[in-house]
Amino acid sequence: MKLSVENLNSHYGPAHILFDVALDVADGEAVALLGRNGAGKSTTFRSIVGLVGQRSGRIEFEGRDISNQPTHAIVRGGLGYVPEERRIFTDLTVEENLEVGRQPPRNNAPRWTRERLFELFPNLAEMRGRPGGRMSGGEQQMLTIARTLMGNPSLVLLDEPSEGLSPKIVEQMVEAILTMKKEGVSLLVSEQNLHFARLISDRAYIIERGRICFSGTMTELDARPDIRDAHLAL
């Protein structure tokens, strides 16, 4: 098992946000975490990578318990995280952005170099010296993914990669994600757009009010329109 989460509970100050969340990602698998805005998707991701201070439960990554580790140590262990919105460093050039993400290679994950990433995202190669702030939204989104791949992760958490992007760019995003998967990177992707999730993932969880309320394959989800309609508000 690549990632295994059990009994995850998270709080922000007095507010209890996540309730006994449990999910797994197998080696080489791409899993979708679906749910509407405010359901707890981002909090789940932030809890896994240690950005939420008050969390309890069991979080195992490659068999190691990471629930008490600080964010940077978790990420250095090979768990990449791409947060919501693009959050690239607008003052830094494309190459400098990639430099911030650079980590030593590891044995159980595909090894990315700057040049390999420029092959995967040819747009970026043409603008190596350009400050991130002067790139379009789609290019910025590609850069955030490339930047995380510079850390040679074996698992990547992608938080709402399609939000705020035009349909065309979203399609490019689908391709990039499929390439990552083919290379052997495991993925956990949070989404609201079911169309998008269907294109990239094998399995899905649905989260609602901080609780996992469905778990199964995409086909199983399609067979349950009641669940889909109740929790995704399509």
């Binding site: 399609s162 035009s166 349909p167 065309k168 399609e171 689908v174 757009n193 169309h195 998008f196």
Partner: peptide, 12 residues
């Protein structure tokens, strides 16, 4: 379609 809408895979 070429610039923006794409193949229409990601909307209804």
């Amino acid at each position: 379609r070429a610039i923006y809408l794409g193949e229409g895979l990601v909307y209804d």
